[in-house]
Computed example of a mutant assay.
Amino acid sequence: MHRRQLLAAAALTAYLPAVWAAKGYPNKAIRIVVPNAPGGAADITARAVGEHMTKTLGQPIVIENKPGAGGVVAGQTVASAAPDGYTLLLISSGTAVSEALFKSLPFDTLKAFAPVAPLATFDLVIVGAENGRFATLGDLVGYARQNPGKVNLGTPNLGTTQHLAAELFKSAAGIDLQVVPFKSTPDVITALRSGQIDAGLDILSPLLAQIQGKALKPLAVTGPKRSRVLPDVPTAQEAGVKGLNAASWNGLAVPAKTPADVIARLNKAVNAALADEGVRKKLETLNLDPHPGTPTEAAQMLRGDIQRWNAVIDKAHVARQ
């Protein structure tokens, strides 16, 4: 056989299994690996969407929780899985933070995964204690400018989206304040209410009960638009911090080289789930905004966040781990 024919035959042989996988897909259970513990917003989102996908795809969707190492444990599990559409990863803004922050991951996020679809977006919020010194974000910024280094802003954990959003806030506002990482959101709340810190920056959902109970005062949300559940609270940009645009999001991805037809099938099932009234209500009770979209849009969200957080880390001189 001519060499060119041999090469063509070899290429066809390599291609056929992917074609067969796409045409017969799915014919067994699919797992979604979640880099968070059970019971949180990420886990509940995956379960709500997965339950509806089971109806659409005709196969069970199994949720596998693998928390640890900033999502690296879950990421490595999926990066090393067969690219056949039977192993998915819940990705998020945290995935982008890990790619930007860790010096050496066991995988290259942009090369190891093929995004399938966005799932939801959710707000970050800057808060003060209800009886604290700041009534508005402008008050906080003005005081920090007059008193460099004397404002303490709490966030949960080093190297989280919230932590880097706080560093972005410092940079965008042109102020010098102390970002104080705590082990958890409850620790941030306790420190705020006891006066140990002046303000906090965290995901809105776990702070909402404290805000509604008048224990915490929302100063601004950090995303591009006002929150659906706090419509009277301005965005940071409306409050004068023009360069602060940081929201959180999550989505689904598969191992790179998964057939395009399989990704398209999964994308269709995800978007059908997000269009379902029951799924939307479940997400909205968590103060998440369902975000149907294309694989391309999910990829742009991931790539854009990696670029954003790389720039923040460089400018703020955050030590890469």
Rank of each mutant, 00 (worst) to 15 (best):
Met1Gly: 15
Arg3Lys: 11
Gln5Ile: 14
Ala11Gln: 14
Ala11Thr: 13
Leu12Met: 12
Leu12Val: 13
Thr13Trp: 15
Thr13Ser: 15
Lys23Cys: 11
Lys23Glu: 14
Tyr25Gln: 05
Asn27Val: 07
Arg31His: 08
Ile32Arg: 09
Val34Trp: 07
Pro35Trp: 02
Asn36Arg: 11
Gly40Thr: 01
Ala42Val: 04
Ala48Glu: 14
Ala48Trp: 09
Val49Pro: 05
Met53Phe: 09
Gly58Lys: 11
Ile61Val: 15
Ile63Gly: 09
Glu64Cys: 07
Ala69Met: 13
Val72Tyr: 04
Ala74Gly: 03
Gly75Tyr: 05
Val78Gln: 01
Ala81Ile: 03
Gly85Arg: 04
Ile91Phe: 06
Ser92Val: 05
Ser92Thr: 04
Gly94Ile: 02
Thr95Lys: 02
Thr95Glu: 12
Val97Arg: 10
Val97Ser: 10
Ser98Gly: 12
Ala100Gly: 08
Lys103Ala: 12
Pro106Lys: 01
Asp108Phe: 00
Lys111Thr: 11
Pro115Val: 03
Pro118Gly: 07
Ile126Asn: 03
Gly128Val: 02
Asn131His: 14
Gly132Ile: 00
Arg133Leu: 02
Phe134Arg: 00
Phe134Lys: 00
Ala135Asp: 15
Ala135Trp: 07
Thr136Glu: 07
Asp139Ala: 02
Val141Ala: 02
Tyr143Glu: 00
Arg145Glu: 10
Asn147Tyr: 08
Gly149Tyr: 01
Val151Met: 01
Asn152Tyr: 01
Gly154Asn: 10
Thr160Gly: 02
Gln162Leu: 07
Ala165His: 10
Ala166Trp: 01
Phe169Asp: 08
Pro181Cys: 02
Phe182Met: 10
Thr190Gly: 09
Arg193His: 09
Arg193Asp: 13
Asp198Leu: 00
Gly200Gln: 00
Leu207Met: 13
Ala209Glu: 14
Gln212Cys: 05
Pro218Met: 09
Leu219Lys: 04
Gly223His: 06
Pro224Cys: 07
Val229Asn: 09
Leu230Asn: 05
Pro234Gly: 05
Gln237Ile: 06
Glu238His: 07
Ala246Ile: 15
Ala247Arg: 14
Asn250Asp: 10
Ala256His: 09
Ala256Tyr: 05
Thr258Trp: 01
Val262Gln: 12
Ala275Gln: 15
Glu277Trp: 04
Val279Met: 07
Lys282Thr: 15
Asn287Ile: 06
Leu288Ala: 01
Gly293Ile: 03
Pro295Val: 03
Thr296Val: 12
Glu297Asp: 10
Leu302Gln: 05
Gly304Lys: 02
Asp305Ile: 00
Trp309Arg: 06
Ile313Asp: 09
Val318Ile: 10
Ala319Val: 13
Ala319Ile: 08
Ala319His: 13
